[in-house]
Design a protein around this nucleic acid. Structure first.
Lengths: 341, 341
DNA sequence: CAACCTAGGACAAACGATTGTGCAAGATGG
DNA sequence: CCATCTTGCACAATCGTTTGTCCTAGGTTG
């Protein structure tokens, strides 16, 4: 039974009034427009009986407000982005917005299409976790006057609001833990070079090593993407290069790849090798050796992004602070072994 | 610079033609409507120059096709639902649809609001992972003529298409593994009673126990939700009740709770207790004792759901098969210990 | 040379809401 | 008793497209 949804016209007819009256009666503007309560009720009754459900499409066209927010992530199945999507979605819901989701599959081209599609659908705001370093399409969104919040990765040049973690600090802290345990030879299993989180984490590590008077060797860094596959390859390379006492995985997914590589190399954490990682994970606690991590506060990141966006929508003004950094939390769980220095 | 997007009217003016001509020229209907190629190009040029981006809102209103699909899940941060969301989103993208996402936070009331909101936005199809046993709002969607696909949980009464796993079979196989290893006292840490996956898994366990001539004891089943908290509580209760040699966790999240309870009880898997679980997880392999699991093929479930929905949209016909069951795969990883019978 | 094509576009009516304004009929005031 | 309010609603424009139909000017045909 493909029942056509009833329109305001039909409701008006059923109640014996004009569409304008029906509209105002249902919008609660009866008093304001001097609609008698008898008429008002008649309209409401008619609406009930006909199961009237206003077309948001028509409303959007008329009011030029779609009530839509766009969320663009590289991979919703990644717990980090899933959390972002969840928080934004929930916040949106609470504020009467609906969320359009796009999964770019880590592809810039797809991301561009998605943004374009969203603009065409007149989203009122965008939360984007950009995949690459290309940001032209995002600047076009800003040019179109659409509030935009970047999450995780920001662009140095861009003017967009960005929410991300205290990468430098977190990385420095983890590095400190390793150094304090006597480690001098630390392999870095990085994510995508050139991205903000990656560079800042590198920066944190370097700074901390420097403080401890340990030389920095570019060859102790491997990896190309924030993926387990990249982590696996990179960890393998580092392990084969020899003489490392610790590995620093730059993400969740990367840590997974590291664990596999470590196992295949016949090593054990932390006996033969210490391991620390960015991002926490529910299971990190139950891994053979529970992992010591720098946990990004994804919930807070997502909420902050949503709040910044919705505030911007409500006020029409950009927030003062352009880059928001959420603290990370260190969980020491025992994947670092103390060694003789 | 809040540039108002340019309209077809402006493009038409710039090209010196009427809106109708502009519309047809851009829609590639020049030949069909005898528009000279000179005019056609003029329109395209004008569109380029003005960065014309058609309003999908207006198109939707006029054509009564929004090109929107709705995806409703209890929690996108749950890897299972995240995978569903991802597959549907990707399939939608490939077919020119955009996806509205709702996260119900496991609340029926929120789910109802979400569905209502989506109907109001005239989604052309819905993929829902229902949270409870209430399905009235979903029936209303069907009554509205919106193709609907249920994922994971179906309703015995409903007429909606459902995609889910071979719960009974998977549960039976895991149970078999335990029985073969000599286990006679198996605790079931269930999810939400009354839901299809839960009941079918229970059914699988019971059938297999019966085949082996092992008595069924309702008191060996605990748990109220598919959450780690419920899993933690339930596992605790079961362990305190004593004399169990194995635990069967009905989900990922539940397994997490079980691991915590087991650790707190000072027991070790599999030495003191065997553990099997439904749902795989990237980390399951690296847990102290890698977990033996029945892995749901989430990717396949998501794809099937998307395909069923999109086929339905394209053909206008419901698929013949109402319930689609995707096989589960058993991964034996060593969390089952053999014991003397 | 009148009747008829054909090409090339313009006009206008939708789609389903919102909203500024106009217009009657009864109430009120002087 | 006439002018003026108020009350209570209807009319119609508008948002930006799509699409069926109509119109005009030049070319063809008999």
């Amino acid at each position: 039974m493909s029942t056509t949804p009833s329109t305001l016209q039909q409701v008006a007819d059923a109640a014996g009034v004009s569409v304008s009256t029906a509209s105002r009666a249902l919008a609660g503007k009866a008093r304001e427009y001097r609609i008698s309560s008898r008429t008002e009720e008649a309209v409401q009754q008619a609406a009930q009986k006909l199961k009237f459900r206003p077309s948001r499409t028509a409303q959007a066209l008329r009011s030029q407000k779609t009530g839509l927010l766009g969320v663009v992530v590289p991979d919703v199945a990644n717990p980090f982005f899933a959390a972002i999507a969840r928080e934004v979605t929930r916040a949106a819901e609470e504020n009467g917005y609906a969320v359009l989701l796009a999964d770019t599959g880590e592809q810039t081209a797809t991301e561009q299409r998605a943004v374009e599609q969203f603009l065409s659908r007149q989203v009122e705001g965008l939360v984007v976790c950009p995949v690459g370093q290309e940001s032209r399409h995002l600047q076009r969104a800003e040019a179109a006057g659409i509030p935009l919040v970047h999450v995780d990765r920001g662009f140095p040049d861009g003017s967009a609001v960005t929410v991300t973690s205290e990468h430098t600090r977190g990385a420095a802290q983890l590095t400190r833990l390793l150094i304090d345990a006597g480690h001098r030879h630390i392999g870095i299993v990085q994510g995508e070079p050139g991205t903000l989180p990656n560079e800042e984490r590198i920066e944190g590590v370097r700074a901390e090593l420097k403080r401890a008077g340990i030389d920095w060797n570019p060859r102790q860094v491997e990896g190309t993407h924030f993926s387990d596959e990249s982590g696996y390859q990179a960890a393998g390379t580092l392990l084969r290069a020899g003489q490392l006492t610790a590995l620093f995985a730059f993400s969740n997914q990367i840590a997974l790849g590291c664990l596999r590589a470590i196992r295949e190399a016949g090593r054990t954490v932390p006996r033969d090798l210490s391991l620390v990682t960015f991002d926490d994970h529910p299971f990190a606690e139950y891994v053979a050796t529970p992992l010591t991590v720098a946990s990004q506060n994804v919930t807070e990141i997502g909420r902050t992004a949503a709040r910044l966006l919705i505030d911007q929508l409500a006020s029409g003004k950009k927030p003062r602070k352009r880059v928001h950094r959420i603290p990370v939390q260190i969980h020491q769980r025992g994947s670092i072994a103390s060694i003789e220095s």
